[in-house]
Nucleic acid binder design. Sequence first.
DNA 1: ATTATATTTCATTTTATTTTGAAACTTTCA
DNA 2: TGAAAGTTTCAAAATAAAATGAAATATAAT
Lengths: 167, 167
Amino acid sequence: MEFEKAKNRFIQTWGALGSSWGINKTMAQIHALLMISDDSLSMEDIMDELHISRGNASMNLRGLIDWGIIHKEYKPGERREFFAAEKDINELARKIARERSKREIKPALSVLREVSQQDFEDTADANAFKAKTAELYEFVSRADNMLEKITEQKDNWVTKTLLKLVT
Amino acid sequence: MEFEKAKNRFIQTWGALGSSWGINKTMAQIHALLMISDDSLSMEDIMDELHISRGNASMNLRGLIDWGIIHKEYKPGERREFFAAEKDINELARKIARERSKREIKPALSVLREVSQQDFEDTADANAFKAKTAELYEFVSRADNMLEKITEQKDNWVTKTLLKLVT
DNA sequence: ATTATATTTCATTTTATTTTGAAACTTTCA
DNA sequence: TGAAAGTTTCAAAATAAAATGAAATATAAT
């Protein structure tokens, strides 16, 4: 059963990658499993394969749906729900990038703008603070715009960006 | 003391952003504090300001040095060490991007390549697996290359990239 | 309407991560 | 060399995050 081993290795790796890129481990593992499954899977299938509890499976499946990277499917004659990953990897990465911008960068930006614009006493400390936070605001804002520009292109955005950068 | 409040708000925000971008919270807070400090700070200063223990401060300072985003400074006549953040934000972001590529993406890539190239039985499952992991390898590899291209430019890489994308 | 099947919720438990603090270690000065 | 000042280490404690599992809820079939 070499295949089972490789499958597992992949699921673990994707889980680790996920948890360092903002998606929790189990979530990323479920996602990995769904990606490599030819057909959609039931919650039971997922629980069995990953050895996780029903509650855990339920919550993380919902999480994945919130991220917009998996969806439910209904099979004729079947009562329970099945789950499948979006098949397009470009789309997957786009969704993650945009979601993270919304959840993490935008709120931080708003704080940065706020604190950098406030008026304080005219001390060296306060001035260094204003200058630095303003600079950070500027930078993060630009980086976020860049991300937006890169991901607004629908398909093959990575390749297209790469091309633009090389020429 | 409006200023103290703003300072704190910034430190908290930067900590939260850090912990969602691969740098732990305290580390990011120390970094935040050093960034907005006009002068370099001693470990004692940092402990006091952030209300953390000596051990915690020591470990996280070392962590920050490992990331290459702060450095020690010695003051004439002073026995203890002082710490300061690299002042250039572009450089900071470059270092983080490259370090994360090295620590997280590269190892995942090597697993992806490995499992996608292995030979399995000729079943639907195994074939779906090979196809998907190969596709993922391709994608992640390109994304990593893109990151490399973007960050290999020394200064103002975000701005420069943005410009290239707009034209 | 009742039963059977499937899913969600959430208080509790488990596991993982951070933090502490005191001892060990290092360096500097007298 | 020895004491003082500073830093690091790491086992234990505290905290935070994730997972369990059983009860509650929802949905479908008879």
